[in-house]
Design a binder for these strands. Structure first.
Lengths: 115, 115
DNA sequence: TCACATTATCGTATATTTACGATGAACGAT
DNA sequence: ATCGTTCATCGTAAATATACGATAATGTGA
């Protein structure tokens, strides 16, 4: 029982974790790719391109929408999904930053450090 | 019922999703940061730096170890954790690639495309 | 050998995620 | 108005994740 525990996590940590969660399923990784390649895409097209039922795809889209990575515009009876460019840019930048900082470590192996 | 559904997901998609899952909790985002900053770190130190019980921290470390982002070397009764540099490098590269490709889209808004 | 320190694992409770069929809501076309 | 299409939501089942106390395992040092 050395020192007191730190409080909660920072907003930054929570944000990165939340985005990672949104991307933590192959279907959602793929949906982002598909939406980017096709620029914009009806929900039904996505259903055909994924090995999942319509209801399940809808759920995955909802999760991506939740964190703002995509948006869906209603177009008559259909819904046209596309990547949210601003958000994608921020996420790209933030993760690049995060990983770059991780890579900055001096790469001392555990054995080398050894107290 | 247009065309047949695609098969499974690619190894690449599964890999990215799995790494994202490993990073989908603020504690694990923070652990990576801490290990990088301190170069290497005893498990006990991490417990003090996180608002979580020892058993819970151990679980989070296990998840990061599962995907190979960190490794733990036994040092007497202690365990010295550090970032797996090779894996971190691969992950950094792969995610950079993924995001860069996403950003390549022509950014046609749904309304602009409109059939 | 006997405590002590350190960490993983077990057991368990609760919450979240994933998946799907069924249903409902909104719209276009007839 | 009714029908078919498109998509979200509901209900639900099964799996996974998160958290913690308790316990086991391992090594240090007295």
């Amino acid at each position: 029982m050395a020192t007191a525990k730190t409080q909660d996590f920072t907003d930054d940590e929570i944000f990165l974790a939340d985005i990672a969660k949104a991307l933590s399923h192959p279907a959602r990784i793929k949906i982002m790719k598909l939406l980017s390649e096709m620029n914009a895409c009806m929900c039904g097209e996505l259903v055909n391109l994924l090995p999942l039922a319509q209801a399940t795809v809808s759920q995955h889209l909802k999760e991506l929408k939740r964190v703002g990575l995509i948006q869906g515009d209603i177009d008559g009876p259909k819904v046209c999904y596309c990547v949210n460019v601003e958000m994608l840019f921020k996420v790209t930048k933030d993760f690049q930053n995060y990983f770059n900082n991780l890579n900055k470590g001096e790469k001392i192996s555990c054995k080398t450090k050894k107290k």
